[in-house]
């Protein structure tokens, strides 16, 4: 190698390297920016606009855009959300249902994840595959499966009536109970997988050390296993809780008309009432509530990535 000026080809290559980096970052960045971030800004803007009830959504939006600059912020939509108790109820219901479902999912998922992590070699792979398999099958179909089970004319009622335990069919579908079943059922793999991956990484000799130092098994679990699996618990819980808050399909198919959830409300405002600004305001309100858990989730993700590196 000489200290002379680089050849044309070298210069071209270096230019490519410098700009290749920008290109590799830029393309996905631009895509996500345009199709993920910008839409939220539009939702935010529309949530402050006025709805023109009589007109189809297109023109109402168009007139809004024309006046875009002159329009002052219209908090009417948000005030409406506050004034109508329907929305507050839907919010609180969603959070309550999502929180309770998350806890139930954790209670079912933790022992399963623990059992899988402690299973022997090939058995472990098989069990893990069995957890993942339903996750790959259609979500809609998994919710659908419960219709046939929980229905008034469904399998549980048929069985219980046949055994004579009950004489009248139980109302299970179109209740909050059915929504819990649906959420727990469909989101269980999301809980088990992060739990499994933290539990699997954990050195079993840590528990043995705790036992050796005089802990009873439940103490060893509470003092060693549980704290060490905290990242998995948090990741799994957030993976269940956040989407569950905005869930639409499960309350729609399994819940009753009284099972108000915010995702359903948004859907109805949009598709049934065609009130785009209110739907946008609902979305923004939901987002404000979810920002903290979402950022928390991202924080956990980043920390785990750094831990791996």
């Amino acid at each position: 190698m000489s200290s002379e000026k680089p050849t044309l080809k070298q210069r071209f290559d270096r230019w490519m390297i410098k700009h290749g980096r920008v290109l590799v970052i830029g393309i996905p960045y631009l895509w996500l920016f345009l199709f993920f971030l910008v839409p939220f800004l539009i939702v935010l803007k529309i949530s402050f606009s006025m709805a023109e009830y009589a007109q189809p959504p297109y023109t109402s939006l168009f007139s809004w855009i024309e006046e875009g600059v002159t329009i002052t912020l219209n908090f009417g939509n948000y005030l409406f959300l506050l004034s109508d108790s329907l929305y507050a109820t839907a919010y609180l219901n969603s959070i309550r249902i999502a929180a309770i479902s998350t806890v139930i999912t954790l209670l079912i998922g933790y022992p399963m994840a623990y059992g899988i992590a402690r299973a022997q070699g090939s058995m472990r792979s098989v069990l893990l595959m069995l957890v993942i398999l339903p996750f790959w099958t259609s979500f809609l179909i998994r919710v659908y499966a419960w219709i046939g089970i929980l229905d008034r004319e469904g399998l549980i009622n048929a069985f219980l009536l046949w055994t004579g335990i009950i004489s009248e069919p139980l109302i299970m579908r179109q209740t909050e109970f059915a929504v819990y079943v649906g959420i727990v059922y469909t989101y269980l793999p999301f809980m088990i997988l992060p739990l499994y991956s933290t539990l699997e990484k954990m050195d079993i000799s840590l528990v043995e050390a705790a036992l050796d130092l005089g802990c009873k098994p439940w103490q060893a679990f509470a003092k060693v296993t549980l704290p060490l699996s905290m990242p998995g618990i948090l990741a799994g819980s957030l993976l269940v809780f956040i989407p569950a808050v905005g869930e639409f399909v499960i309350p729609e198919l399994l819940g009753g008309p009284n099972t108000l959830m915010i995702g359903r409300t948004l859907w109805n405002e949009f598709f049934a009432n065609r009130d785009w600004p209110i739907a946008s305001a609902v979305a923004i309100a939901m987002l404000i509530f979810l920002v903290v858990p979402i950022m928390w989730f991202q924080h956990i993700q980043t920390k785990q990535e750094e831990g791996q590196q």
Partner: peptide, 13 residues
């Protein structure tokens, strides 16, 4: 004798 500043890894001796 050659200054290595700015020479990327794939061009170094």
């Amino acid at each position: 004798g050659v200054d290595m500043a700015g020479v990327p890894a794939y061009e170094r001796p």
